[in-house]
């Protein structure tokens, strides 16, 4: 079999993988809220300690 078929199959397969990944992410609602995660990722997990102030004050305002 010619190498071009192999290459094309691979390229289409890779594209299809990304496409399905996209469809799944839409289905799971990842595109429903595109704002909150951007804020959430800046929070620290352990906030019970009182020493986190300096880290968080640099945070820009969100609105």
């Amino acid at each position: 079999m010619s190498v071009i078929y192999v290459l094309l199959t691979i390229s289409v397969c890779v594209a299809v993988v990304f496409f399905t990944a996209f469809v799944f992410s839409v289905k799971k609602g990842q595109y429903d809220d595109s704002y909150t995660p951007s804020v959430r990722m800046l929070f620290e997990d352990e906030l019970i300690e009182q020493t986190t102030t300096s880290n968080n004050q640099n945070k820009s305002e969100t609105e």
Binding site: V12, A15, F18, F19, F22, V23, V26, K27, Y31, D32
Partner: peptide, 19 residues
């Protein structure tokens, strides 16, 4: 129900367009 059909369509069209 959230209507996400436009996103799917956009995905399909973009995917096909690129290829």
């Amino acid at each position: 129900k959230v209507d996400r059909s436009l996103l799917y369509k956009l995905g399909v069209a973009g995917f096909s367009f690129g290829n």
